[in-house]
Design a protein around this nucleic acid. Sequence first.
RNA 1: GGGUGGAUGGCGGAACUGGCAGACGCACAGGACUUAAAAUCCUGAGGCUCGCAAGAGCCGUGAGGGUUCGAUUCCCUCUCUACCCACCA
Length: 840
Amino acid sequence: MSDYIVNEIEKRWQRLWKENKVFHAVKDSAKEKYYLLVMFPYPSGKLHMGHVRNYSIGDVFARFNRMQGKNVIHPIGWDSFGLPAENAAIKHNIHPKKWTKENIAHMGEQLKMLGISYDWDREIATCDPEYYKWNQWFFIRMYKKGLVFRKSANVNWCPSCKTVLANEQVNQGKCWRCDSTVEQKELIQWFIKITDYADELLDGHEELAGWPEQVLSMQKNWIGKSYGAEMDFKIDFDKKIKESDDGIIVIKSPYGSTKATLEILPPKTLKIFTTRPDTVFGVTFMVVSPEHQILKEFKEKIKNWREVEEYITKSASKSNIERASNKEKTGVKLEGVYAVNPATGKNIPIFTADYVLTGYGTGAIMAVPAHDQRDWDFAKKYGIEITEVIKGENSDIEKSAFEEEGVIVNSGQFNGIKSTDAIDKISLWVEEKGYGKRTTNFKLREWLISRQRYWGTPIPMIHCPKCGIVPVDEKDLPVTLPENIKFTDDGKSPLQGCEEFVNTKCPKCAGPAKRETDTMDTFVDSSWYYARYTDPKNDKKPFESDITNYWLPVDQYVGGIEHACMHLIYSRFWHKIMRDLGLVNTNEPFKNLLTQGMVTLGGSAMSKSKGNIVSPDEIIEKYGADTARLFILFAAPPEKQLDWSDDGLEGCWRFINRVWRLQELVKTKSEIPATQEAKEALSRSMHLCIKKVTEDIGKEHQFNTAISSVMELVNAMYVYKHHGNDEGLSLKVYETIVLLLAPFTPHLCEEIWSLLGKKEFVSAAKWPQYEEKYIKQDTVEVPVQVNGKLRGKIFVNVSSNEQEIKDCVINDEKIKPVLEGRQIVKFIYVQNKIINIVVK
RNA sequence: GGGUGGAUGGCGGAACUGGCAGACGCACAGGACUUAAAAUCCUGAGGCUCGCAAGAGCCGUGAGGGUUCGAUUCCCUCUCUACCCACCA
């Protein structure tokens, strides 16, 4: 028979799928829908193995469910705004649009070569005005709802990308994209109030049973809800006598200036957040972050202001990473100012130190050195009093062997209570006394969305000298990116220099006004693309809710773990916004999530700089897409890291040819009839295999074992030599093999399917069903253990009872000698599974 | 420091709900086919000891303990490792 000519066959089926619109999805309320989504690629230029893995996994789900008779939507598109396009523009003098579109064209071709069952009619690119128009529309809707605001903020600034980064985009103080050290810079920026949804984003996890525990825990950590209390500590000053210029002592009072009264000021407080209100009696000092406003406010009262100011300046120049990596704590005591511990009434010193973060809680802490490592370190260094308020078994505060749980001591009426109970009791007392109130705190910060870049969605706002900030009229959307722009390396947004873009009219008063030149974070684009896919060409609305609600939520989302805390939080948030705007009727966008592992070579990530890249093009050219897909799905379970192996790939290529050659076996007629026994065994193997593959894909998502079991069935067919005279059984098994493999190696399967005379596409064929009756056996082989050690095996009739089996076993020729001279203490028989004889 | 996983042959990886550890594949060895090689088909194989051999015995899922007739699986302690977060009060 002829060889399997991979490239020709694959190209032909790709063409036929397209011509026949085999993967085109249409809303059909009568049919059960299935939405399979893969994370859309950034058009960087070339497809890499990570993409191949992502899309191969996705395609198995899509094809499997399609063959199960579901109405499958399987879209693809391009996350096509972003920095690399601009960098390319500067470096190679090519317009970002041109660069992006060329990459999309090339990568689209590569994707098509993989034979993924996409509905290409739904292709979208986020850099198209038809798409980003709706980013702007959402932005304005959110602005009107009060969810968008502007504020001056210390922002993360990447000096290399020359743009602001969201907190989520800073890793270890470095830019997530280019790894430069991130600086702090004060700028007026646009924010979205994601924190309004912090609680719901957390509680929403209840609905996400189909998400990996790891991702949920990462998000939980990221949102960082903690329970505790806010407390106000009174601040007081040294009674201070002010000297006037002429050296005469001037004393101010509410009763007028005389030359003899003391200065009296209204009471001031310092607000802190703590998760351990039970330790309030142990507070012996307070610390505020160097950015805390109280410092500037009390400038006059702080005797050592110059020293404090120096410390503030020094901290400001340090990057976050420096601050965090410096384990040796530094700080300055504020002379002349002190706080009062509300519980003990004692005066306690206030420090400023950069181990207290400005962005979390209130930027100030009550320090309990006896029960917090950081506070202990600081107290030891600066010789501050340490008061133990929780006594545990190994308490030794001198050695910093402190307890977090134990019995309350040194705390007045609370002494003797367990610290775990004291949290509630002392909080309650704090509330009653009016020192503070119980509250919660989040690590999640507002989403900073403005970027000083060109290649992104323009923020649709207008600055009018008369009316202030005014949103663009919805009917004037989209605000399109001007194409005639200059790229410079000076760090300014190229939009700022574009007169024709900047100068406009105020939508309110029609006077001259200027456009906002910031663009949106590209995570906005990817926050709702899954909804746009359901109605991608709509030019009246982002999408038609009727259609979108049919398809949503996404039944299975497949993508990399690296998006656990950025994209996957933003899009959950966006979905809730869309729900609150009445556009969708679900709470969560993605029902099930599969996070695929990395593809590595020699154990480390493939990267250009390491030069250890395996190019999908070469592999496809040599072995075909089916082989590449099969290997990538077979070599490891989808969630695990996968190390590329040329030898393993070769093995998959051999398997594909082995399946191909089965055609010959099936065709060859034999004179010798197949034995009944052999036929039953083969038939049983087939039904077992259908069961296994169906469960492995549908329930377990274990594609590697699904493929193994088909390999076993193929092996069984090779062993089953009585092909021919068996009333078509081997043909039936072969057809089953082809159907079961279709989600993995679709081109091969289409080709064989048509050569077997089928008129339909295997891609649209019905998934095989197994029948229990063919799996059931009359006799089974059961292992026999003596004292837990395997000593033999016997065949038993499935219906025989324990006594019959016992008689049979103890007389078995292999077991009998082992039992010789010993007493049977216990005989355990687990039906059709195992026999264990306990002897003495 | 906090969180979440993981550790099984030479390698990638299997093993239902506590029931024959090592499926399937790679690499390896032997055989058939061939003038020869490749390809293909068939067979073998966790380790150690004994045996010419068929085979027999012991050990074996990171380490130590526990529960159980029986543990890769459950519990405790520890080691190593990957990823995420991290002076988060």
